[in-house]
């Protein structure tokens, strides 16, 4: 088991009734409401829901990209040394690599922006490139890599400044089904090796259950949190588990919550 409770039993991230309202012209639009869940340090929590359920918005609130309009959000617990600039890594659906930089230089971007010592960062970047399975591709340009490989580089980039929290917004949504399965297994391996806390947004129910120590289910129209489910499946997870009875039960429960039957 990799999931470990934070010392003192206090969660790493705590959301209580988090709400976000967008205003466009004179209309108000409720993007997130009643998001209430905990994330323990070292957990991989999936957030699943249909388009428009506010899952990306929620992720961006946690990233500190915009404020929430109600409820409380605590990251790192009381008196923690969580630094929102240094301790967040992000991965999006698109790899968003800089076309004019080689893989190594792309991975180094966060270190450059944060002004970290470049010698160490370079060393670390090489190690991460190995870890995500891109050894030997350091000097290639993004266009020389496949979509899956580009996303691996993006994952290495999200880890280069050694953040405590990685936020992933449908990182494998643009990949073909087979590559996606492979990347799921890779992500679990990377997660277990790096021991980071990961928030993983997806609209794939099976993906959410397969990856998560916990799954947060959001519904759309109106946006609200429907449930949070602890996934009690053995680790390390293998593809065989997708045929497991308990896996099916979790998935069926989420389908039900999302009104797909």
């Amino acid at each position: 088991m990799t999931a470990q409770p934070a010392s003192g039993g206090e969660p790493f991230i705590r959301l209580v009734g988090v709400k976000k309202v967008f205003r466009a012209r004179r209309e108000e639009f409720l993007a997130v409401s009643d998001a209430t869940f905990d994330v323990n340090e070292g957990d991989l929590v999936s957030i699943v829901g249909p388009s428009g359920c506010g899952k990306t918005t929620l992720l961006k609130i946690v990233a500190g990209l915009f404020p929430h309009d109600g409820g409380t959000l605590e990251i790192g617990g009381a008196g923690s040394d969580f630094d929102p600039a240094r301790d967040v890594g992000m991965v999006f659906q698109q790899p968003l690599l800089l076309k004019w930089r080689r893989v190594l230089e792309n991975v180094l971007l966060p270190a450059e922006i944060l002004g970290l010592p470049m010698g160490e960062a370079r060393e670390r970047a090489r190690g991460l490139i190995d870890m995500v399975g891109l050894a030997g591709h350091e000097q290639k340009y993004p266009y020389e890599l496949s979509g899956g490989m580009q996303q691996r580089a993006a994952i290495a980039r999200s880890l280069v400044h050694d953040p405590r929290l990685i936020l992933m917004d449908e990182p494998f949504g643009a990949l073909d089904a087979l590559t996606r399965e492979r990347m799921n297994l890779e992500l679990l391996r990377i997660w277990e090796q790096s021991r980071k806390t990961i928030l993983f947004v997806t609209h794939g129910i099976a993906e959410a259950v397969f990856l998560g120590t916990r799954v947060v289910v959001l519904t759309a129209g109106p946006a609200r949190m429907a449930d949070r489910i602890d996934i009690d499946l053995p680790r390390p997870r293998t593809l065989d588990m997708k045929t497991h009875e308990r896996f099916g039960a979790y998935a069926r429960h989420i389908y039900h919550l999302l009104g797909v039957e």
Binding site: M90, F92, Q94, L96, L98
Partner: peptide
């Protein structure tokens, strides 16, 4: 826009965004 979000989480300055992303782009 997502790239801007990514560097904003790192608290990139306008100058950094210009030099590292906008200008070469």
């Amino acid at each position: 826009p997502d790239l801007i979000d990514l560097v904003r989480t790192l608290r990139a300055t306008r100058r950094q965004i210009f030099v590292k992303i906008q200008l070469p782009g």
